[in-house]
Amino acid sequence: MAHFQKKRGKTTPAISTASLPDIIFMLLFFFMVTTVLRTATLKIQVITPTATELTKLVKKSLVNYIYIGYPLKPYQKELGTKPRIQLGDKIADLRDIPLFLEQHKAKVPEKLHPRITTSLRVHKDVTMGIVYDVKTALRKANQLKVNYSAKKKAENQ
C-alpha cells in the first residue's frame, strides 16, 4: 500500500493556474453586463403585493418607475406618514408626473415611444385613492401601458 501511494504522489503534476485569470475575467464580464449600477434610493417603503399573472418587463430603458408607499422612518418628519409618490430620486406630487414622463420620453428614440411602460411599484397596504389619482394622471398624459409591479406568488394557495 505504502508503495503505491508514494508512486502516485510523485507523478501528480501541479495544477496549472494559467487559465485562472481567463475564467475570472469571464465571470467578471458576465457580472459587468448584468449589473445595473444605479437604482433610485427610495425614501418610501414599497413592498409589492403578490400575483400569478405576471409579465416580465424586458427592456429596462423603456420603463419608467413610479413608486407609491409610506415614508421611511428617517423621512417621516418632513414627509409625514401618509402614502407619498416618488419619481426617480425625488418625492413628488401628482402635478410632477407629466414632466417626469416627458423627461423619460426624451431619452427614448421616437419610434419606441408607444412601447414605453410605466411600472407602478405600489406598497400593498396603500389605498386605491392615491393609486387612482396616479392612474388618472397617467391617462391624461397619454401613458397607457402600465405595469402593476408584483412578486410571484408561491404555487400552493
Binding site: 409589492t48 400575483a51 399573472e53 405576471l54 409579465t55 416580465k56 418587463l57 429596462k60 420603463v63 411602460t117 411600472s119 407602478l120 392612474k135 397617467l138 391617462r139 397607457l144 401601458k145 402600465v146 405595469n147 402593476y148 409591479s149 408584483a150 412578486k151 410571484k152
Partner: peptide, 9 residues
C-alpha cells in the same frame, strides 16, 4: 421587474 400588465383607457 415583473408585474400585471394593464392597458389603461
Amino acid at each position: 421587474d415583473k408585474g400585471v400588465l394593464v392597458k389603461l383607457p
